[in-house]
Design a protein around this nucleic acid. Structure first.
Length: 482
RNA sequence: CGGGGUGUAGCGCAGCUUGGUAGCGCAUCUGGUUUGGGACCAGAGGGCCGCGGGUUCAAAUCCUGCCGCCCCGACCA
């Protein structure tokens, strides 16, 4: 394959290596994923960005339903008294909730919080419904938005309102709740790899980093191109913390009243931010094929020539018959060169060029976004060729991301070396940890990095804590995070 | 909430020092010619110069108060 040799460069997009945050802002605005709104911290998700979210939704919704979950919808507003019921929960969220204090001109007797998450309102309703162990498990999910009044916001990564799903389940036993918690985390991990082509580190959060009110929080953590981590999804085993606080009870098999065991789990539009920062390059977006709104764009060349457009539309139909999402750009006002650059910036995985010379040879030029390679492909059987190529692109992106992550994951011999490396190169630091919250606080104070998780895949790297020297409990990943 | 930066056409900017008809590039619109890596010609539209107050015959420009936005920290999906 002939590789395009000029240096990757797109007008108006800051180069990643010059200024990564500016690169990110340039990319999301220039590719029309989002726009800022008149309300600080609230973003507009434009059609191209929303289509990515719809693909994530479609994938997850199918997996949720296949594992027995049903969708519901709970109200946006939560009475203050409900929010206050679980002590750790309210302490965790109080600083960032938005309040509704008036209905029309009248002040409300009790102010209402705009949900920052829905455990409290859902538990209130579950407590009214649940009677018997025979009804369990409750396996529900809702797609909605939540509001957290953030002080520093960035589109997709941290906005005051964001779209997400939140699953909320009740189980008869602790074992079942734990199994559910891990099952949903695993679905997230698979989704990240199979749909987004992002390799994740899965593990458990430290006490300090876990969800407000949780017994245990499990997480998937991704490493961005600049070496910072992104918490990409969480699954909480809430044990009986909320079910006791909300007096959710059921008559058990032995005739005793019991509190059910409770889980919640969620992923948000933040995933889109991760997608951009893992795969993107100096030409803009690089979208993994399975989540890309448009998987193939067809660009007719010299389309005013007899037969070109007919061939192009026939090709579109052929590709769509293979189940592909295909666009054709036959706007005569833009040159092919302009279109090539445009769709590369927008990260469309595969471009097909078809012009008079191709038609003569019964072929089309097929280019791939990930490597920028371009080669002729025979029109006979082109559907299967493109399907295979899209799979190849997915695998290549996943491999590239994993290779990059592994290259940015390091071990260290001394605390000084850890501090120095964290300052100079970022990435995942891998080391043994004692489990002491004070040790964790010192790491953060010295490096601004946090313990991302204690991964399921443990390695024994020694017997003492790499950060303070006390006896070690488990291996941890430490990184600066978004 | 601390530190830094920045507000002039949709976007990117110049003009401000030394006050005197608000400009450039891209984008947009019209007509035509074009089309294998960001085409060309001709024409056109578009501005409370962030907001308020002041100085002045005259303010984008000088003085003053306020506000927004962005980035970096502390807090979080």
């Amino acid at each position: 394959m002939a590789k395009k040799n000029d240096e990757a460069f797109v007008k108006e997009i800051t180069k990643m290596e010059d200024d990564f945050p500016q690169w990110y802002t340039d990319v999301i605005l220039k590719t029309d994923l989002v726009d800022y709104s008149p309300v600080k911290g609230f973003m507009v998700i434009k059609p191209y960005g929303y289509a990515i979210w719809e693909n994530i939704q479609a994938y997850l919704d199918k997996r949720f339903k296949a594992t027995g979950h049903k969708n519901m919808y709970f109200p946006l507003l939560i009475p203050e008294s409900l929010l206050n019921k679980e002590k750790e929960h309210v302490e965790g969220f109080a600083p960032e909730v938005a309040w509704v204090t008036h209905g029309g001109k009248e002040e409300l007797a009790e102010r209402l919080c705009v949900r920052p998450t829905s455990e409290t309102i859902i538990c209130e309703m579950y407590s009214r419904w649940l009677k018997s162990y025979r009804e369990l498990p409750y396996l529900n999910n809702q797609w909605c938005s939540v509001v957290r009044w953030e002080k520093a916001t960035r589109p997709f990564l941290r906005t005051s309102e964001f779209l997400w799903q939140e699953g909320h389940t009740l189980h008869e036993t602790a074992e079942e709740a734990q199994a559910e918690t891990l099952q949903m985390l695993e679905i997230y991990r698979e989704m990240a790899e199979n749909l987004l082509a992002i390799p994740m580190v899965a593990g458990i959060k430290s006490e300090k980093e876990k969800f407000a009110g949780a017994h245990a929080t499990y997480t998937i953590e991704a490493l961005m191109h600049d070496g910072k981590a992104l918490q990409s999804g969480t699954s909480h085993n809430l044990a009986q913390h909320f079910t006791k606080a909300f007096d959710i009870t059921f008559l058990g098999r032995t005739g005793e009243l019991e509190n059910p065991h409770h889980t919640s789990w969620g992923v948000s539009t933040r995933l889109i931010g991760g997608l951009i920062m893992v795969h993107g390059d100096n030409r803009g977006l690089v979208l993994p094929p399975r989540v890309a709104p448009t998987q193939v764009v067809i660009i007719p060349i010299a389309q005013n020539k007899e037969g070109v457009l007919d061939k192009a539309y026939a090709l579109k139909k052929k590709l769509e018959e293979k189940g592909l999402r295909v666009d054709i750009d036959d706007n005569p006002n833009y040159s092919p060169g302009w279109k090539f650059n445009e769709y590369e910036m927008k990260g469309v995985p595969v471009r097909v060029e078809i012009g008079p010379k191709d038609i003569e040879k019964n072929q089309a030029m097929v280019g791939r976004r990930d490597t920028l390679e371009k080669a002729p492909i025979a029109l006979d059987g082109i559907g299967d060729s493109v399907v295979n190529l899209l799979d190849e692109i997915h695998e290549n992106l996943l491999l590239k991301a994993r290779t990059h992550r592994d290259a940015m994951t390091f071990t260290f011999d001394s605390y000084e070396e850890f501090v120095e490396k964290m300052a100079s190169q970022a990435g995942f630091a891998k080391g043994m940890w004692c489990g002491d919250p004070e040790c964790e606080a010192k790491i953060k104070a010295d490096t601004a990095a946090t313990i991302r998780c204690m991964p399921f895949e443990q390695e024994h790297l020694g017997d003492t804590c790499h950060f303070c020297g006390k006896p070690a409990k488990s291996m941890v990943y430490v990184a600066k995070a978004y």
